[in-house]
């Protein structure tokens, strides 16, 4: 299992730092994904993960998302998610993490 870095971009919108990640968030990249997110959250007061280019998320990715939410909460930062496609959103909804992580349909809803 390779430990590859997810491809990411960062930009600002409506006072939020938009962290966009592309591809599969599975066991192979979950630790790198968490480390990237931790860095973005640490450096910015409000972070939104744009999930529109995430094609797949496994339970390892879900665990990373919860850890990022905890990290943000413990450090007085805002962290939310937006734009998940049908397949990813279905996984989030099955686990009710769309509510915990306050999923927005799009970045326009921030």
């Amino acid at each position: 299992m390779a430990n590859e870095l997810p491809e990411e971009t960062r930009q600002t919108k409506n006072g939020w730092t938009v962290w966009q990640v592309r591809g599969h968030i599975d066991l192979m990249v979950a630790d790198s994904f968490f480390a990237q997110g931790e860095s973005v959250i640490r450096e910015n007061p409000k972070t939104v993960l744009d999930m529109s280019l995430i094609e797949y998320i496994s339970s390892a990715g879900l665990r990373a998302l919860i850890r990022l939410k905890k990290y943000a909460s413990m450090n007085g930062k805002a962290f939310t998610i937006a734009g998940a496609g049908d397949l990813v959103l279905a996984v989030l909804r099955d686990c009710r993490l769309d509510i915990l992580l306050e999923h927005r349909a799009s970045l326009e809803d921030l």
Partner: peptide, 24 residues
């Protein structure tokens, strides 16, 4: 180990989703 009632709590254990998703 997933909490099955209501919205998960931020302080709950992070695991358990995999088996839950498999069963679902």
């Amino acid at each position: 180990r997933r909490h099955t009632d209501g919205v998960p709590d931020i302080d709950q254990e992070e695991g358990g989703y995999g088996i839950f998703l498999v069963k679902k």
